[in-house]
Nucleic acid binder design. Structure first.
Lengths: 378, 378
DNA sequence: CTCAAATAATTCAACCAATAAACAAATCCG
DNA sequence: CGGATTTGTTTATTGGTTGAATTATTTGAG
């Protein structure tokens, strides 16, 4: 019941160790030798050699010139993830733009297409058709580079069920939308933008394996990463932090309840309360109030999940210096364990592209997690 | 980085499949044949036979008389988990009692020892010495039955760090307590009582693989079970639901903040507010108020984690019929997805023994999860 | 009563993947 | 130039699953 319920055969062993070797190479900043991979993984050099042969044959790895040597001994052949081979297509539909990007196995963004324009007046069929055109353009660009798309992922600002149906995307006005076949049979997974942005931040490195990413836009969403894996919840809609109750008698929220976080720290609510039109005009007092509400919500999340790092994205990233004090006050007061282990607040490293890059990254990650499946396809 | 970073060798394959077979037998209500295990797991009958031989030799499984047959063919030999073999020792220290129980591989509670008495005046050294005596009595009883303790686990009402140190147990007045060697070298793990009670409820069956268990005592704690596994958090103190903010301007809490859940739905706070001395005397209005606070907190948890089942234990279990309406009102209002997927509220199936049984169960589960380690010990 | 069909469990050769140890290759350094 | 050193490959061995054949034990039909 607890452990996975699938039998393990020899093929699974190979699949697992292929992934292990590939990821070891992918996570290494510099080209790495077979011997170093063996030392890092605990496998023998012979086994690593055999696995690397397969990975090179499947164009997941390439051999590069020997790195500059330090001591004696035969110089090592360097290994790197291949820049030609599988690639991930990241897609995004948001309130005021449509975008696509192609990321290769090295993590490099090879192509980036953005089509600005308010998506709200567009009906879902037309929007999906336009997205499909954009996706095909991106694929053509990728193929011209010698890349093969391993899959695609789409980021949307809304609740996505486990089966990929967009249950509701309030700011797009969408409800129960099924994303069809965008790319002639290439599988497209759909996910919440905050979830994918969180994955994207994880991929930048420098973050612990467990953290919460909070994205402030019109709505407020959170992506929860536990042990390096996105936590989606039972049905796929975890992280709905925007409707945490801050004050049971607070202002009415469009969700029907009162005093939700969104009414204190959501973009529209902040601007309305301050009587201004851009976030740049917000005064310190406004930001302190929003920060305290945000801090209260963060304290709740930390008390519940025991994460020690919170990454703030969306409009919160540039505002963090001015929000920080308000947030810190409530964390200090309300996080039970704040005395022993402080909570680290960080601004997101990636800008508005985070969700789209996270989507592409999710595809790449799937290849890194199961290279055997990719090899079997070639 | 995402997938586990350990190499897989053939021995790991065997270890995994041993666990798979053992768990398949353990999860089956009736004795089950080797052929059925093969069908259920996807392994071949030959492999299952070989694995079962090892498990029987290590007294983890026994063969029982053939089950009553239905059709033609050679009758199957039934397999069950052995009632003599490894056993788990569950221990608990709480405000007004000390307890131990012995659970065998079948899940049966073989012995149960409870020593009532207020533990608070007792200093930690004396308390741990008394606990050690109790543990040895339980071990002697187990050994007289032909059982061998595979380990022990201790449930405490407080924050337990990942290394097993009890950081703080407010109601015991403990701080930074290290549980030493209670049983001559037998490893003793320490965990929060709500965490272990949650595991215990999971073991009763009938619950989905992801749920949250909320234990109401003087404090309020939660055990978070995701995908059949206890979620402990980065440092081990997840689930501190008692200090979720209900009202930022509410009554002061002993934690230093204001308006914590504990001040609305904690046992002491409820009694104080109602001016009574037992929970039985609480009036409907008192319970409605507590229920609404609890419902607000539950809504937050559900919005964040997307679990669809909440189990209420401790004092909440018997009070649930009278709390339910208050809770449901807030869930209905505040859980974003309440329309599509209702939240199920349940009273805990196990009474005050839940934590102790969960502790013993955790030991048993460790054997079920890695029988190879147990076999290597014999 | 006997024999075919059916189901359970075991035996055995084949296969696959990792390992260990020996070996070949390529460099550094004295 | 030759020993030391490190990398990478080769080869025999080991451990574990598989699949097919075999044995075991029952039901049910003739």
């Amino acid at each position: 019941m607890t452990s996975s319920s699938a039998p393990v055969r020899q093929a699974s062993v190979r699949a697992h160790n292929l992934a292990l070797v590939l990821q070891t190479v992918a996570n290494s900043a510099d080209p790495i030798s077979r011997a170093s991979v063996a030392a890092a993984t605990g496998l023998t050099r012979a086994t690593v050699s055999a696995l690397v042969d397969d990975l090179i044959a499947g164009s997941l790895l390439i051999e590069v010139d020997p790195a500059p040597r330090n001591g004696a001994g035969r110089p090592a052949a360097g290994l790197r993830t291949a820049a030609i081979g599988p690639a991930g297509l990241g897609l995004e539909i948001n309130v005021d733009y449509r975008a696509a990007c192609v990321v290769d196995l090295t993590g490099a963004v090879r192509h980036r297409l953005v089509e600005p324009g308010d998506q709200r007046p567009v009906d879902t069929v037309a929007a999906l058709a336009a997205l499909a055109r954009l996706a095909r353009r991106a694929r053509d660009l990728a193929e011209a580079d010698g890349l093969t798309l391993a899959g695609a992922a789409l980021a949307v600002p809304g609740l996505v069920a486990a089966d990929g149906v967009i249950r509701v995307a309030p700011n797009l006005g969408w409800q129960d939308v099924t994303v069809g076949d965008l790319l002639d049979g290439l599988p497209v997974t759909v996910d919440n933008e905050a979830n994918l942005a969180a994955l994207s931040e994880l991929g930048t490195g420098g973050l612990p394996p467990s953290f919460v990413y909070i994205s402030g836009e019109i709505g407020i969403g959170a992506g929860i990463v536990l042990d390096g894996t996105l936590f989606r919840g039972v049905r796929g809609w975890s992280g709905e932090i925007g409707h945490i109750a801050i004050d049971p008698d607070g202002p009415a929220c469009r969700c029907g309840a009162r005093g939700c976080l969104e009414q204190y720290a959501g973009q529209e609510a902040m601007l309305r309360a301050a009587g201004v039109t851009t976030v740049a005009e917000l005064a310190e007092a406004d930001l302190t109030r929003a920060g305290r509400a945000l801090g209260t919500a963060i304290a709740t999340v930390v008390n519940l999940l025991d994460v020690d790092t919170v990454v703030l994205g969306g409009i919160y990233a540039p505002l963090l210096p001015r929000l920080r004090d308000g947030i810190a006050v409530e964390i200090e007061r309300r996080v039970l364990t704040a005395d022993w282990s402080p909570v680290t607040l960080r601004a997101a490293a990636l800008g508005p592209d985070a969700a789209m890059r996270g989507a592409a990254g999710a595809v790449i990650r799937a290849v890194l997690d199961d290279p055997a499946a990719w090899l079997a396809r070639s």
